[in-house]
Computed example of a mutant assay.
Amino acid sequence: MSAASSTAVRRRLGRSVQYVLLAVVALIPLFPLYWLLISAMKTPAEFSQIPPTWFPSMPALEPTITALTAVPFVQSMLNSIIIAGGATISVLVTSILAGYVFAKHQFRGRDALFWGIIATMFLPPIVTIVPLYYLVSSMGLSDTYLGVLLPWLANAFGIFLMRQFIQDIPDELIEAARMDGAGEFRIVWQFVVPLLKPAIVTLAVFMFVYAWNNFLWPLSILKSEALYPVVLTLNRLMSYTMSFEYQNVVLAGAVIASLPTLLVFLVTQRVFVAGIAASGVKG
């Protein structure tokens, strides 16, 4: 065998090993999702079987039906969509506007104000939950959608992310728009926003998933079960099915609750990855 052929064989072998390692690394985080899905389709007898089965012999829909009927799951999904969607839209708007001001406007105390906002990122949520609760309650917004949304109307990370991206937009573009008579809001929405697509999608995914999965604040401020987001309803479902033989119902509810966030990621994955890569390059 010639040297060139030996080199080609070694390269193919090395590439094959790399593919195998990448497949193993990819399967590790996907395994819990797979186990969640198959467990939600098992019968109670098969779910409690030892050793466990790797695939249900007869996939069952009864756990999913029970999860949907035992608690108001559909209503809670709509509540989560309202809460997570409202928080995401609000954070995008406030982050873009604030990021534009911090990136392209000079005013006294700008840097001190910006770094003060960034400092709030390092406060644990548990530290702010009591003052937030008293603030929202004093405004008469407890047990309302707006009361849940109020702490999420703006986000320090979103402001930081947008500022970093907007800083790279040439000042000449903005000055040219001003010379053409465009106001600041028109400059933002017509000239700046189209250049922020990766950052907007990245922030939207992060905020939607965070608001969808948040448990402690809705639990603190909501009293009516009709307003519960899906994470609180899922917790109620766990209390409803404390017996081990009904844990497949809980897992079926977890699968249903996970679908919107998985769908959001699948729809936006290309732009999301590009946004993450760009933000990583910016440091």
Rank of each mutant, 00 (worst) to 15 (best):
L219T: 08
P51H: 11
G109R: 11
T241V: 09
S5F: 13
P218V: 15
V71F: 00
L22S: 15
V230R: 03
G14V: 10
T261N: 06
A67R: 02
L222N: 07
L196G: 02
V193A: 11
L149V: 15
I276D: 02
M77I: 09
L232Y: 05
W217M: 06
T202L: 12
E245I: 11
Y145M: 11
T88Y: 00
A98L: 15
Q18K: 15
S76C: 01
I129E: 13
L92H: 03
L68P: 01
K104G: 12
S76K: 04
D180E: 13
Y133A: 12
A274T: 10
Q269P: 02
L146D: 06
L150N: 04
G253Q: 00
L203N: 10
T202D: 03
G283L: 12
S39F: 09
A26E: 14
V249H: 00
V91K: 02
F208D: 05
E172A: 08
P260Y: 05
G283K: 09
D111T: 14
P151E: 14
I129R: 05
V249E: 02
L22D: 04
L266S: 07
I89T: 01
E172D: 15
L161A: 14
S239M: 07
L141M: 12
Y19R: 15
I256N: 06
F114I: 11
A156I: 06
M139C: 10
A98N: 05
Q49S: 13
V188I: 13
S224K: 09
I221D: 03
Y100C: 05
L27T: 11
F215R: 06
A87W: 00
T43D: 14
S142E: 14
P125W: 14
V136R: 05
T69P: 00
S220F: 04
E62Y: 01
F206D: 01
S48K: 11
D171F: 03
K282S: 09
V17S: 14
V130R: 07
L149R: 12
I96T: 12
K282T: 03
S220C: 04
K282E: 05
P44H: 13
R11W: 11
T64D: 09
R15G: 15
I166E: 08
